[in-house]
Every structure is written in structure tokens, then in C-alpha cells.
Design a protein around this nucleic acid. Structure first.
Length: 257
DNA sequence: ATGGTTGTTGGACAA
């Protein structure tokens, strides 16, 4: 099975980019983040025409996630369990596909530090950890893909010092990231590409970040131990980032038996 | 260099 994840920064603005990439890459599952539309406005017909079922958790203007799958997803969960402050933000969707639970996640950006936004990010990561603990206790193999808004290491950012006080790389963020990994989860790209550097998944629209290759590696897959045992490859496809009307993120792809 | 860009939306906010 091949599973991809892509923060598309508006699915309606990006429909041509995403459908053309799907025709080429042919993943079995595509996890989307930042669809920026309400559930009923998701362009599901375009994806159904390509042979994908759609599961969507959208909202007006911001956020929103979706899961496209050749096999029909079942037992769909449209929010991360646990108490959340109002207004609710559409950042998580999970479903059963084959013998995996597969989730699409859009972790809050959290900037700037010292604000309610950063507290919300930390609380969200703690809630994700609690949910992972539940799945692990039930021995359900799972794969969570998405825009984590976390830079795991210095080699995953073009200017580590410049990002030291950013919510994507600040020590409390990395501490929560490590708490997730310490549950026994595998971060697929780093596990299979232990020496890779400049393996970015995001380049800002501003300041010529893309042509200068000033990027961040913030889109990830986390796998439970049973899922990690079946992991065979994890790659980043830079091609879509260089195309017309590109998202500021590019897809990450995972293969497992 | 306190800038720069994109999307939603129709001014400001998020990233």
C-alpha cells in the first residue's frame, strides 16, 4: 500500500495540481490538509472520477482535512478525541482502510510563542499523544500522516538559529514531539533516510524560499510498531512545489507491505 | 532590509 500526505493550501485553488499529481503518482491513499472549505464544498466528484472515495472534515475559510482512498474508508472519526475549546477547528480525520487505522492531521502552527495559539498547539499535541496511547493499548496498527508543524532537528531547517524562537522549533514543541516518539512510534522518513539533510517538505511563498531551497521538513508520518514493521519506503516528491500555482508544501509518500 | 506571498474573503487574519 502507498500512502501520501499533502498540505494543499486550499483544495479548490489546487484542484488541477492535485488531480494531475494523483494521475502520475497513483497512491492508494492521499491525506490532505488545509483544504480550506466546508465539507459540502469539497470537490469530491473530481476525485471519485479518478477512482477515490472521499472522507472529509471541513470548515469555513481555514483548516480542514480529507482522506482519499481507493478502498472505501470505514469507521470514520472526524475529530481528534478529547476536549477542545470552541470554536472547533477541523484538523483531524481517521478511518479504517484495510487492516490499518489511517489518520490525516493538521497540527496547529502555534505562532507566536507566549500566546493562546501556542497553548492551543501544545494542548493539541498532548491530546494526540493521549489518543495514540489509546490506539496502542488496543493494539490497533496505525499510521498518522500530515502537517505536524514540527521541525524535528536542526538539519530539517535551513536556518536553525533563526527558527529557535518559532513555534515549529521551540524546545517545548520538540519536547512534545519526543513524547510522541517515545510512545514507540516511528517517524517514517527519518527512520528510512537516516543521513538525509535538506529533505524539506515546505518552502514559504515569500523571499524566494523555493529557488533558494530555504525550506523546512514539517510534514511527517508516524507509525505504530506493527505498522512500522511493514514499512518499506518513505520519500518526498519535490516536483509539485516547482509547478504553476503550487502549494507551499509538497507531498510525502510512504510504502508499506 | 522589520520586507516578502498566497488564500479566503471582501478587512483582516492565518500561514
Amino acid at each position: 500500500m502507498r500512502i501520501a500526505s499533502w498540505n494543499v493550501n486550499s483544495i479548490r485553488a489546487r484542484i488541477e495540481n492535485v488531480t494531475s499529481w494523483l494521475r502520475l503518482a497513483q497512491p492508494d491513499v492521499l491525506l490532505l490538509q488545509e483544504i480550506k472549505c466546508q465539507t459540502d464544498d469539497f470537490p469530491r466528484f473530481e476525485f471519485e472520477a479518478l477512482g477515490y472515495h472521499c472522507a472529509v472534515s471541513g470548515q469555513k475559510s481555514y483548516n480542514g482535512v480529507a482522506l482519499l482512498s481507493r478502498l472505501p474508508p470505514t469507521e470514520t472519526l472526524t475529530a481528534l478525541p478529547g476536549a477542545e475549546p470552541e470554536p472547533l477547528q477541523a484538523r483531524y480525520l481517521e478511518a479504517t482502510i484495510g487492516d490499518f487505522r489511517i489518520a490525516t492531521a493538521y497540527i496547529p502552527n502555534g505562532n507566536p510563542l507566549g500566546t493562546d495559539k501556542y497553548e492551543y498547539k501544545k494542548a493539541w499535541l498532548k491530546r494526540l499523544k493521549a489518543h495514540c496511547q489509546t490506539l496502542l493499548a488496543q493494539e490497533i496498527p496505525f499510521i498518522i500522516g500530515g502537517d505536524f508543524n514540527v521541525i524535528p532537528e536542526s538539519r530539517d531547517v535551513y536556518d536553525p538559529q533563526g527558527w529557535a524562537n518559532d513555534a515549529l522549533f521551540a524546545p517545548p514543541t520538540l519536547a512534545l514531539w519526543h513524547e510522541l516518539l517515545n510512545l514507540g512510534l516511528t517517524e517514517a522518513f527519518r527512520a528510512l533516510n537516516p543521513t538525509a539533510s535538506e529533505a524539506y517538505t515546505f518552502w514559504d511563498y515569500q523571499a524566494g524560499s523555493w529557488p533558494r531551497n530555504q525550506g523546512l521538513r514539517i510534514d511527517h508520518f508516524l507509525l505504530s510498531p506493527e505498522a512500522a514493521d511493514r514499512l518499506t519506503a518513505c520519500t518526498i516528491d519535490r516536483t509539485p512545489r516547482g509547478q504553476e500555482k503550487a502549494s507551499d508544501h509538497t507531498p510525502i509518500l510512504l510504502s508499506c507491505d
